[in-house]
Structure formats: structure tokens, C-alpha cells
Simulated scan of single mutants.
Amino acid sequence: MSEKVYERDFNSELEFVTSRSGGPGGQNVNKVNTKVTLRFDLSASQLLDDEEKAKIADKLANKISNDNILIVTSEAGRSQLKNKEEAIRKFYDLLKKAFKVKKKRKATKPSKAAVEKRLKAKQKQSEKKQQRQNKDF
């Protein structure tokens, strides 16, 4: 796997569906199909091997339908072209997210000075409370 998955050209496997966008916009919203839905059939992809497909299916499960299709929508822009470009950008961002390797957490412990400081603060608080108890009213 020398080439990163999200650097491959998936344009031949992407399917676009347009529909009317919601929200404000007046006549433009009522007449023009500006919302773009990008559909990527994970199981039919020729560019991904089975291991990569499984990883995408696992990491992006909430974006994948029961038919094993990855769905990305965009309706932010007022033009269909801008929304199509935005949907493609979101698709590649999702692929990057799916294949990003998480850093392993290194266990650390507090320094001696920090431990000492905490214990001194506890001792000071304890003495303060002891003094309150010793007062006779």
C-alpha cells in the first residue's frame, strides 16, 4: 500500500444525485436542484481491496446505508457545481479520517515537585481544619 487511499482518483466510482435544497433562498430554492448527494458503492469499488473496505465500513458506519453505500450530501452553496465540489471534498476528508492512524498514548506520571506541592497543599488544608476544631466557643 505505497499510495495513500485518499490520494486515489475515485471520480469514476462516484455517483451524484441532485435535488431541491431546503432552507431560505426564495425562488432559487424552489426552482433549482442545488443539493448534491454523493453516493459511493463500497462493495462494488474496484479501487479498494477487502481490507480497506472493511476499515471504511467500520470507521464510517454511520454514513453507510444498509446497501453498503457511503452517502455524503452538500447543500451549503447556492450553485450545484459548488455543492458537488463540496461533496467531493467531504468524501475525501472522510477517507482521510477513516485511514488516519491514532497515536498511542504514552503513560506519564507527575514529577516529584508536583507530588510534593500537592502533598504540602493537602497538609496545609488539614492544619487549617485542625485549627478550626481546636477553637472553643
Rank of each mutant, 00 (worst) to 15 (best):
M1F: 13
S2Q: 11
E3L: 15
K4S: 15
Y6L: 12
R8L: 13
R8Q: 08
D9E: 07
D9Q: 06
F10M: 02
F10P: 01
E13A: 08
E15C: 08
E15I: 12
V17W: 00
V17C: 02
G22N: 04
G22D: 00
G23R: 03
G26V: 07
N28M: 10
N28A: 15
V29D: 01
K31C: 03
V32Y: 09
N33R: 15
K35G: 07
K35L: 13
V36L: 07
V36A: 10
T37N: 02
T37M: 02
F40N: 05
S43P: 00
S43R: 13
A44M: 05
S45Q: 01
S45A: 04
L47D: 04
L47Y: 08
E51N: 11
A54Q: 11
A54G: 02
A54N: 07
I56W: 05
I56M: 06
D58V: 03
L60A: 03
N62S: 13
K63Y: 12
N66V: 13
N66R: 12
N66F: 05
N66T: 12
N68M: 12
N68V: 06
I69W: 00
I71H: 01
T73N: 09
T73K: 08
T73H: 04
S74V: 08
E75R: 07
E75K: 10
E75I: 05
G77N: 11
L81M: 11
N83S: 09
E85Q: 15
R89G: 01
D93I: 06
L94F: 13
L95Y: 01
K96R: 15
K97C: 07
K97L: 14
K97H: 11
F99R: 10
F99P: 03
K100W: 08
K100C: 10
V101I: 13
K103G: 13
K104V: 14
K104D: 11
R105Y: 11
K106H: 10
A107L: 09
V115E: 07
V115H: 06
K120C: 02
A121F: 08
Q123P: 00
K129I: 06
K129G: 00
Q130A: 14
Q131W: 06
Q131I: 01
R132K: 14
N134V: 09
K135M: 15
D136L: 13
F137Y: 14
